[in-house]
Write a protein that binds this DNA or RNA. Structure first.
Length: 479
RNA sequence: GCCGCCUUAGCUCAGUUGGUUAGAGCGCCAGAUUGUGGAUCUGGAGGUCCCCCGUUCAAUCCGGGGAGGCGGUACCA
């Protein structure tokens, strides 16, 4: 082949991935299960576009600079900046405000789809990933928040993860009260304290103590600046995080109300648990916050333990819609990171991506009889069987068999001149053949024996193929 | 963004204390078997040793810079 030095190296943009049939089938199955739960809870499906005007997403334009901090942005013909959505909540706020007149209040919806973030990818963390959200807009009480937590738990159960996750719940008002009690009033310092608390499960009480004080050095030697609290303040916060009871306030009352609902509905602390270290989205959450934690270890392909983080979360955001409307609109919701969850499950083997069952392949033996073979394919398809004609250029049977094998085809149909004269077809069950082959070591014998192969009258082809176990299984699942 | 490690064939990795034609296993292609996927055997294709600059008679190897990958950390609306 001629050398071509201008060849383009085929490569993916960093942080993006291709998906193969088995991956897609697994994701589709996950999405279907999640949807079923959300539907059962009474949420309606809506969709918003990938692109929104940048200000809709809450990004502001620094003069002429492209607004690319964390988002991917493009400029329209009229010079309006648009950005790829980075979550499904900001678009919902826009949708709700825009359709306020016509929507039922409270408005209960779910949305599923791709979101994009322009930032460094990490383990299970991509720049394009799928989220699956549910939100109730216009309901202020803790029962709406409690429902979100219970639905998160039910969703994880529906995904086959019973006993392998915990939904952790806290309330921003409780955290605010604790900080007020120890005298942290500076806004910047408050944020640093919250971030430190959020790291409890990652670094333990000792790490949190360091982050509340001077700072902490990570294992690569990088230093993180701390909140610079004095020792007494830091100890008070650490005590709270370790479970000391905070002083009564509105947040504590809301958590108590939620806990009562969990208990009466039968959601024990093994599934939903009040946890003082949950912080989450520092900007817009105004009350209860919650997140899903996997309770098993995740390792990467090299067997290293990987810090995986939460696979879903949410909370109450009473201020978000008011960016579009001149009044407070209470809202609560949560999001499941489908891609991230799938990636964790894949690593732990909880998401077995079975190879997709291929089509029954009708081989081409006599090249002037394509029309006959095509008719066989049509017959199979009309019988509800996944089938195709071999379209490759080779007439060699070995090639066609190899192709069928690679496609994970359940069976092939063969009709050469001998079969045509007899009015029959050869149908080979490839799975049965492979099984029989295990005990045959001699190639000549293996060919002679033709394991799993049957001669069937031409008129009974479709009926026979239908009864092949792998075909029957596919038809049952997809017919 | 910051810190650390890494980058040699499609994949996993050897190797050259700086020297002429850079290797293995697996995978891929072909043949043995012109009508049968596996196994076996034989043969074959496939490399700017990540890129650029420097040192040197000579760099895949040494030095500097960059890119990419992985991990940590920060941020996460």
């Amino acid at each position: 082949m001629a050398k071509n030095t201008t060849l383009i190296e085929p490569r993916l943009p960093r942080g993006f991935i291709d998906s193969e049939p088995a991956d897609l089938a697994a994701i589709e199955q996950m999405v279907a299960r999640i949807r079923k739960v959300y539907e059962r809870y009474g949420f309606d499906h809506i969709q918003t576009p990938f692109l929104e005007y940048t200000e809709t997403l809450g990004k502001f334009l620094p003069d002429t600079d492209r607004p690319n901090a964390g988002v991917f942005s493009v400029q329209d013909d009229d010079e309006q900046w648009m950005s790829l959505r980075y979550d499904l909540t900001a678009p919902l706020a826009r949708y709700f405000a825009q359709n306020y007149q016509d929507l039922p209040k409270p408005f209960r919806s779910y949305r599923q789809g791709w979101v994009f973030r322009n930032e460094k990818p990490g383990p299970g963390r991509f720049r394009q990933f799928m989220q699956f959200d549910a939100d109730t807009v216009g309901a202020a009480g803790p029962e709406a928040d409690a429902e979100m937590c219970m639905m998160m738990a039910d969703t994880m159960d529906a995904l086959g993860l019973a006993g392998q996750y915990v939904v952790r719940v806290n309330n921003r008002k409780v955290l605010d009260g604790v900080m007020q009690a120890v005298g942290v009033t500076d806004e910047g310092q408050k944020l640093t304290v919250l971030r430190a608390i959020d790291k409890l499960d990652k670094f333990g009480p000792e790490g949190v103590r360091l982050l509340l004080g001077e700072g902490r050095k990570d294992e690569s030697g990088d230093f993180t600046e701390g909140a610079k609290l004095d020792v007494e303040q830091a100890e008070a916060i650490v005590d709270y995080v370790k479970g000391a009871k905070p002083g009564d306030n509105e947040g504590v009352a809301e958590l108590d109300a939620m806990q009562a609902l969990f208990t009466s509905a039968g959601y024990g602390p093994d599934r939903i648990r009040i946890d003082p270290s949950v912080v989450r989205g520092l900007e817009y959450y105004t009350g209860p916050v919650f997140e899903i934690e996997l309770t098993f270890k995740v390792q990467n392909e090299k067997g290293q333990d990987v810090v995986f983080g939460s696979v879903g979360g949410g909370g109450r955001y009473d201020g978000l819609v008011s960016r579009f409307r001149n009044e407070e609109t209470p809202a609560t919701g949560f999001s499941i990171g489908v891609s991230r969850l799938a990636s964790a499950l894949k690593l732990t083997g909880n998401l077995t991506s079975e190879p997709v069952t291929g089509p029954v392949v009708v081989t081409v033996m006599e090249k002037d009889r394509i029309a006959d073979y095509q008719q066989m394919v049509a017959e199979l398809r009309n019988a509800g069987i996944r089938a195709e004609l071999f379209l490759g250029s080779s007439r060699q049977m070995g090639k066609q068999m190899k192709y069928a094998d690679k496609r994970n085809a359940p069976a092939v149909v063969i009709q050469g001149s001998n079969e045509r004269e007899e009015g029959i077809v050869q149908i080979k069950d490839l799975a049965e053949g492979a099984e029989a082959a295990a005990s045959i070591t001699d190639n000549a014998a293996w060919k002679m024996e033709r394991p799993g192969q049957y001669s069937v009258p031409r008129g009974e082809m479709a009926e026979f193929v239908k009864r092949i176990p792998a075909v029957a299984a596919w038809t049952k699942a997809n017919g």
